[in-house]
Nucleic acid binder design. Structure first.
Length: 223
DNA sequence: ACCCAGGGTCATA
DNA sequence: TATGACCATGGG
C-alpha cells in the first residue's frame, strides 16, 4: 500500500496539483527561445526581472545579429550594457552575460557540454560568476533537457501554502524533495515550472499579499 | 507614488 | 549559516 492512499481530506499530491494547473492553463510552451544559447542568455537576463523586459533586451541583440557568444564576448561593456538595458541591472547583467559567454566558449560549446553528466554540468554552471542555483537549473532543464526541478520563489510560496513544505528549507533540500517525490521526468518538470510561473502571474498580481488564498489551488480566486 | 518582477553576489556577524 | 545592501528597468 503506497502512502498516497492515506490522503482523505488533506492536500492533493504533487502530480495532482500539476494536472489541475495543466487542465486550467494548458501547455505553456516553455522556454520561449529559438535556440539553446538564446535560452541561456535569457536565463541570465531574467534574473529578478519581468520577461517582457528581457524580451526587449534579447530583441536588441537579435536585431543586430549579436546574439551569439562569439560576438557578445567582443562587445565593450558599455555597449552591451546599453543593449540589455531594458532588462534592468544592466551593468551587472552585461558582466554576467559576458562571464557566461566566456565560460561557454572555453568549455567548447553546446555539444561538448551536452556530453557531460548532469551533476558535473551543474557544478560547472555554478562556477560562473552570475549563475546561481536557479539560473543553473533553468539552463539544465530548458537548454539541456536534464531532469532538474527548478525551485523559485513562486514554487516556495505555492507549495508552502498548499502545506507541502514549511518554506524555509534551503534550495537543494527542496529540489531533492521534488525530484524524489515526482521521479525524473523532463517534460513534466518543464511544464510544471512554467505552469507555476503562469499561475503566479495570473493570481498573485491580482491579489498582492494574500497570505491565505494567493497561489493556493483551493482558493476561490484560483484554479 | 508604490510595489513587484521567471536572482545573485558580496560584505558582515 | 544567515541576514542585508545592492543592482535598475518597466508595468500594474
Amino acid at each position: 500500500m503506497t502512502t498516497s492512499r492515506r490522503r482523505v481530506m488533506t492536500k492533493p499530491g504533487l502530480k495532482r496539483t500539476f494536472q489541475r494547473l495543466l487542465r486550467h492553463y494548458g501547455p505553456q510552451h516553455w522556454w520561449p527561445a529559438d535556440a539553446p544559447f538564446e535560452m541561456m542568455a535569457g536565463a541570465v537576463l531574467t534574473q529578478n526581472t519581468a520577461w517582457s523586459n528581457v524580451a526587449r533586451a534579447l530583441s536588441n541583440l537579435t536585431k543586430r545579429g549579436l546574439l551569439a557568444p562569439e560576438t557578445i564576448i567582443e562587445l565593450p561593456n558599455e555597449r552591451l550594457a546599453e543593449l540589455v538595458r531594458p532588462a534592468g541591472y544592466f551593468n551587472v547583467k552585461a558582466r554576467r552575460l559576458k562571464n557566461f559567454c566566456a565560460w561557454y566558449l572555453e568549455q567548447g560549446g553546446y555539444e561538448v557540454l551536452s556530453s557531460l553528466a548532469t551533476p558535473d554540468l551543474r557544478r560547472r554552471l555554478l562556477s560562473v560568476n552570475g549563475i546561481g542555483r536557479e539560473t543553473a537549473d533553468d539552463i539544465l532543464l530548458y537548454a539541456f533537457n536534464r531532469p532538474v526541478f527548478v525551485i523559485d520563489a513562486y514554487t516556495r510560496r505555492l507549495f508552502t501554502r498548499l502545506g507541502h513544505i514549511c518554506g524555509s528549507e534551503d534550495y537543494e533540500t527542496l529540489r531533492n524533495m521534488f525530484e524524489t517525490k515526482i521521479g525524473p521526468d523532463v517534460p513534466l518538470y518543464n511544464e510544471y515550472h512554467a505552469l507555476i510561473v503562469r499561475h503566479a502571474k495570473e493570481i498573485c498580481r491580482k491579489l498582492p499579499r494574500c497570505s491565505e488564498c494567493c497561489l493556493a489551488l483551493h482558493c476561490p480566486f484560483s484554479v
